[in-house]
Amino acid sequence: MRFPLTLAMLLLAVGCTPTVRMEAPREPITINLNVQLDADVRVRLEEQAQEDVASNPDIF
């Protein structure tokens, strides 16, 4: 009497196991490289700041 109940519980437990799939993405991976632009803007701002401090030394 216990065997059919145990078998039914085992089959239900096996049917509920999660499935993990590994798939490649359909679209290509895009890497955006805006590093050069950011560095260029920072250098310009730093040069402008140095010029402002040199022209107005009593600001700070």
Score class of each variant (00 low, 15 high):
25 P>H: 04
34 N>L: 06
11 L>W: 06
28 P>Y: 04
43 V>R: 03
54 A>E: 07
15 G>V: 02
36 Q>A: 14
39 A>V: 13
39 A>Y: 01
48 Q>H: 03
38 D>H: 13
44 R>A: 14
15 G>E: 06
22 M>E: 13
20 V>A: 15
29 I>E: 08
11 L>C: 12
58 D>L: 04
7 L>D: 01
16 C>F: 09
44 R>E: 11
53 V>R: 15
27 E>F: 14
13 A>I: 10
33 L>K: 14
36 Q>R: 07
59 I>H: 01
30 T>W: 13
58 D>H: 02
10 L>P: 00
54 A>F: 05
7 L>N: 05
48 Q>N: 13
21 R>I: 14
12 L>H: 03
48 Q>S: 10
24 A>K: 12
18 P>M: 03
44 R>V: 08
38 D>V: 15
43 V>D: 05
1 M>A: 11
52 D>C: 05
5 L>P: 01
18 P>T: 05
14 V>E: 03
7 L>M: 09
52 D>Q: 11
43 V>K: 05
22 M>L: 15
1 M>Q: 11
3 F>A: 08
26 R>H: 10
30 T>C: 10
18 P>H: 04
5 L>M: 11
10 L>E: 09
2 R>E: 04
10 L>R: 10
47 E>A: 13
24 A>Q: 14
16 C>A: 12
7 L>T: 06
54 A>V: 00
7 L>K: 10
56 N>Q: 09
51 E>R: 15
55 S>K: 09
43 V>T: 07
18 P>A: 04
59 I>E: 00
4 P>D: 05
51 E>D: 12
